[in-house]
Lab assay of single mutants.
Amino acid sequence: EIRVRVEKDPELGFSISGGVGGRGNPFRPDDDGIFVTRVQPEGPASKLLQPGDKIIQANGYSFINIEHGQAVSLLKTFQNTVELIIVREV
């Protein structure tokens, strides 16, 4: 597990896919977790996150067994800083 802090400027600078009942993700199709799919170059998350990172927690909210829409809404709700716990396959 890796813990990262992303400062919104003005957005977080990454996209996610997956989630329960979602269209899945390109990295682990059998896993309904939330995965980072795109990281904006030079964006707030560019040095912190990589495509394929699985987000398991954001600001204390579990991202395990969460629906895609709910994950997106939560990330939009947070002000300024988001603390993520991620799992990265090496």
Score class of each variant (00 low, 15 high):
residue 59 N to D: 05
residue 27 F to I: 09
residue 60 G to V: 03
residue 75 L to S: 02
residue 1 E to T: 10
residue 66 I to V: 11
residue 49 L to T: 03
residue 2 I to G: 02
residue 37 T to G: 08
residue 42 E to V: 09
residue 66 I to F: 05
residue 10 P to V: 04
residue 38 R to E: 15
residue 12 L to S: 04
residue 51 P to E: 12
residue 9 D to M: 07
residue 31 D to S: 09
residue 81 T to Y: 14
residue 78 F to Y: 07
residue 8 K to E: 01
residue 44 P to R: 06
residue 74 L to E: 04
residue 50 Q to Y: 12
residue 40 Q to T: 13
residue 55 I to H: 03
residue 89 E to T: 09
residue 28 R to N: 15
residue 11 E to Y: 13
residue 18 G to N: 04
residue 8 K to G: 14
residue 80 N to S: 15
residue 66 I to Q: 03
residue 34 I to S: 00
residue 32 D to E: 13
residue 56 I to Y: 02
residue 25 N to G: 08
residue 65 N to Q: 12
residue 41 P to S: 11
residue 67 E to G: 11
residue 53 D to C: 01
residue 54 K to F: 01
residue 39 V to Q: 04
residue 26 P to D: 07
residue 82 V to A: 05
residue 22 G to H: 08
residue 42 E to K: 09
residue 73 S to Q: 14
residue 54 K to I: 04
residue 79 Q to W: 05
residue 90 V to H: 15
residue 62 S to C: 09
residue 61 Y to T: 13
residue 12 L to T: 04
residue 35 F to W: 12
residue 23 R to L: 11
residue 9 D to G: 13
residue 42 E to F: 12
residue 77 T to R: 11
residue 47 K to N: 12
residue 86 I to W: 02
residue 18 G to R: 04
residue 44 P to Q: 06
residue 86 I to T: 01
residue 49 L to S: 02
residue 21 G to P: 06
residue 80 N to R: 14
residue 24 G to L: 10
residue 13 G to T: 03
residue 29 P to F: 09
residue 26 P to G: 08
residue 71 A to P: 00
residue 78 F to K: 06
residue 51 P to H: 03
residue 17 S to F: 02
residue 18 G to T: 04
residue 57 Q to K: 12
residue 81 T to D: 10
residue 46 S to M: 09
residue 64 I to A: 15
residue 17 S to R: 06
residue 80 N to G: 12
residue 47 K to E: 14
residue 56 I to M: 07
residue 22 G to M: 08
residue 65 N to C: 08
residue 39 V to S: 00
residue 49 L to D: 00
residue 77 T to I: 08
residue 15 S to R: 06
residue 24 G to V: 12
residue 3 R to H: 08
residue 79 Q to P: 13
residue 41 P to D: 15
residue 55 I to D: 01
residue 24 G to Q: 11
residue 33 G to I: 00
residue 6 V to C: 04
residue 75 L to A: 01
residue 37 T to R: 09
residue 45 A to F: 00
residue 5 R to E: 11
residue 4 V to I: 10
residue 84 L to C: 04
residue 32 D to F: 07
residue 84 L to Y: 10
residue 77 T to V: 07
residue 2 I to K: 08
residue 87 V to T: 14
residue 51 P to T: 14
residue 84 L to R: 01
residue 13 G to N: 03
residue 5 R to S: 14
residue 14 F to Y: 02
residue 14 F to I: 07
residue 62 S to Q: 08
residue 28 R to L: 12
residue 4 V to Q: 01
residue 87 V to I: 11
residue 23 R to M: 14
residue 60 G to M: 05
residue 88 R to E: 04
residue 41 P to E: 15
residue 8 K to M: 12
residue 43 G to F: 07
residue 10 P to Q: 10
residue 25 N to T: 08
residue 72 V to N: 12
residue 11 E to A: 10
residue 58 A to S: 03
residue 19 G to I: 02
residue 43 G to N: 06
residue 26 P to F: 07
residue 39 V to T: 05
residue 32 D to Q: 15
residue 17 S to H: 05
residue 86 I to M: 04
residue 73 S to G: 14
residue 64 I to F: 07
residue 32 D to C: 08
residue 51 P to K: 11
residue 72 V to H: 08
residue 52 G to I: 00
residue 77 T to W: 07
residue 49 L to I: 15
residue 12 L to F: 14
residue 66 I to K: 05
residue 56 I to W: 02
residue 74 L to I: 13
residue 69 G to D: 15
residue 7 E to H: 15
residue 90 V to N: 15
residue 47 K to V: 08
residue 20 V to F: 10
residue 71 A to R: 00
residue 5 R to D: 05
residue 39 V to L: 05
residue 47 K to F: 11
residue 72 V to P: 02
residue 83 E to T: 08
residue 83 E to K: 04
residue 62 S to Y: 03
residue 35 F to R: 04
residue 36 V to G: 01
residue 39 V to M: 03
residue 19 G to V: 04
residue 55 I to N: 01
residue 84 L to V: 05
residue 62 S to R: 06
residue 62 S to A: 06
residue 11 E to T: 07
residue 54 K to R: 10
residue 51 P to W: 05
residue 88 R to L: 01
residue 73 S to Y: 14
residue 50 Q to R: 12
residue 15 S to E: 12
residue 86 I to C: 08
residue 38 R to L: 11
residue 29 P to D: 14
residue 75 L to T: 01
residue 75 L to P: 01
residue 40 Q to M: 12
residue 45 A to D: 05
residue 68 H to G: 09
residue 32 D to W: 07
residue 49 L to W: 00
residue 30 D to W: 08
residue 72 V to W: 10
residue 87 V to P: 02
residue 79 Q to H: 14
residue 19 G to Q: 04
residue 84 L to M: 14
residue 51 P to Q: 08
residue 76 K to W: 05
residue 4 V to H: 05
residue 46 S to G: 14
residue 73 S to C: 07
residue 49 L to Q: 03
residue 34 I to G: 03
residue 30 D to C: 11
residue 9 D to W: 06
residue 77 T to E: 13
residue 24 G to M: 10
residue 56 I to K: 09
residue 24 G to I: 14
residue 58 A to M: 04
residue 24 G to W: 06
residue 5 R to F: 15
residue 16 I to G: 00
residue 51 P to M: 08
residue 86 I to H: 03
residue 4 V to W: 02
residue 49 L to G: 02
residue 23 R to K: 11
residue 67 E to T: 15
residue 32 D to N: 10
residue 17 S to T: 12
residue 41 P to T: 13
residue 76 K to Y: 08
residue 84 L to N: 01
residue 19 G to Y: 04
residue 47 K to M: 12
residue 8 K to P: 09
residue 45 A to T: 11
residue 12 L to Y: 09
residue 52 G to C: 03
residue 51 P to R: 12
residue 88 R to G: 03
residue 55 I to W: 01
residue 23 R to H: 12
residue 60 G to H: 07
residue 23 R to F: 15
residue 61 Y to G: 01
residue 41 P to F: 05
residue 6 V to H: 01
residue 33 G to K: 03
residue 2 I to Q: 07
residue 2 I to C: 03
residue 34 I to Q: 02
residue 17 S to D: 09
residue 66 I to C: 06
residue 75 L to R: 03
residue 27 F to K: 08
residue 47 K to D: 15
residue 36 V to E: 00
residue 64 I to E: 15
residue 59 N to L: 01
residue 25 N to C: 08
residue 87 V to A: 14
residue 63 F to D: 00
residue 67 E to M: 09
residue 6 V to A: 02
residue 3 R to I: 09
residue 87 V to K: 13
residue 18 G to V: 02
residue 14 F to K: 00
residue 78 F to P: 07
residue 90 V to Q: 06
residue 29 P to Q: 14
residue 86 I to A: 05
residue 22 G to Y: 09
residue 46 S to C: 15
residue 58 A to C: 11
residue 66 I to Y: 03
residue 75 L to K: 00
residue 78 F to T: 13
residue 53 D to K: 00
residue 65 N to D: 13
residue 89 E to L: 07
residue 53 D to M: 01
residue 35 F to N: 00
residue 36 V to H: 00
residue 76 K to V: 07
residue 88 R to A: 02
residue 2 I to N: 02
residue 73 S to V: 06
residue 2 I to A: 01
residue 89 E to D: 08
residue 37 T to H: 09
residue 6 V to K: 00
residue 56 I to P: 00
residue 16 I to R: 00
residue 50 Q to G: 03
